[in-house]
Design a protein around this nucleic acid. Structure first.
Lengths: 231, 231
DNA sequence: AGTGAATTACTCTGATTAGAGTATTAGTGT
DNA sequence: ACACTAATACTCTAATCAGAGTAATTCACT
């Protein structure tokens, strides 16, 4: 059975726009761009048209009329249905009211970090920090500008959120870097030792057992199949 | 032409594990679960097997042997190739060194916020705040526990990052809520007025023009087709 | 009046992904 | 010895997405 609604937030954007007034897909896309919503909601034509089709199939929107000017492609104007309105309110409510599990790429990268040598990672994090700062500057510059132009914060609040996240990431990376550099980060010694052994041409097994020896309690944790889940 | 590498971070996780030692897909999945990496990298069987296939097609990993015990399904053990190693190092380097554009759901929701009435949004944000705090407590509890068990921070740093982001979001939502409640948030007056007019049964056009009248500079910004892009 | 760039408005194809479904074996209790 | 649950190890299908491609029209400029 088809799910009650699509999962792509672009579909929610479509619903909110059609809630304002009927539009055709292309107008939806230009409106989203005008309002800079495509910076917060991934927009591309392929997805837009398939999302519109999927909304229609589920009865959340309806084709109102199909017009054509000259020999241009047809424009199909869509309206939101009552179910569509309800769904939009529900969905947006959920997104605002309930934190969703997300998988940021940097989180994935951090979780795999030990696959690169420490000094390498330090260099990369320095690079990241630089870029994060540049992005932060750029973003806050944009915000000041739009504020000066008289756009109420209401219509750009999502950018403030983005900046807040960036700021938090900057702080995090700064702290991490400091600890990696100073060597106070818990685990760097083991990490360095591992690459030392690898450089010395030891086999995976030799490295494993040497580390197991030199860092007993850690190794115990790493090799036990099931950590106690509590409860 | 096929891209140099898959885009799913799960594929990177596969590469790093095969970089440690050869494994079969199912073992990859259990290892990721054991190490709690599936909390940072979305893992499901369908994706895992197709990602493995895709890595093989691109020559980043190779099937080493196919064994079978009794009548159980075959286990295909894969090894990483030299190209695979290089790609892994490159890819992980990029993820660590370069901030990626992401589209968090909450950012999307914020950008569509005016589609719900103010008081509604306030209630929802209160709910979110509560849940965020609960998650934060839970997460930092887990971290303290694993620290006590002797796991070096190195192997759980991604969770610290997640917590840092959560903390930032908590602060952001707190501030936003305070401003919405006190009415000092730039744009709330217009926002409230809009729903007032809607409740009074005005048409979309009437609302538009009334708001245009009462909030001149804002409306100008909203209706101009092309904001000056500078340059 | 003719050229080229930009805009309008989609369509198509190939990847990717999610999630349920399948089939065998091992372990646990009665 | 039998049933039941968990674990092992994938397979399949439908949905979704991304990005390039297409084709007509308008506008700016010479």
């Amino acid at each position: 059975m088809a799910a009650k609604r699509p999962s792509n937030p672009l579909a929610l954007a479509v619903l909110t726009l059609l809630h304002e007034r009927p539009m055709h897909p292309y107008e939806i896309s230009t409106t989203l761009k005008e309002r800079r919503k495509e910076e917060s909601i991934k927009l591309n034509y392929g997805s837009l048209y398939s999302v519109v089709e999927s909304l229609q199939k589920r009865g959340l929107i309806e084709a109102q009329e199909t017009t054509r000017e000259g020999k241009r492609p047809e424009r199909t104007v869509y309206t939101i249905t009552d179910t569509g309105r309800t769904t939009m309110i529900e969905w947006l409510g959920e997104l605002l009211g309930t934190p969703a599990k997300e998988y940021p790429q940097f989180e994935a990268a951090l979780s795999l970090m030990p696959a690169l040598p420490v000094d390498n990672v330090i260099r990369l994090l320095e690079q990241r920090l630089e870029r994060l700062r540049a992005e932060y500057e750029y973003g806050s510059g944009l915000m000041r500008e739009t504020a000066k132009m008289g756009l109420p914060r209401l219509f750009a609040i999502e950018h403030e959120y983005e900046l807040a996240l960036r700021a938090a990431e900057i702080e995090f990376v700064q702290n991490l870097l400091a600890e990696l550099r100073s060597g106070t980060f818990d685990g760097v010694d083991m990490w360095r030792r591992m690459y030392e052994l690898r450089a010395a041409g030891k086999s995976h097994e030799e490295i494993e057992s040497t580390l197991a020896d030199e860092f007993k309690e850690v190794h115990a944790w790493l090799t036990e199949t099931n950590a106690d889940d509590g409860g």
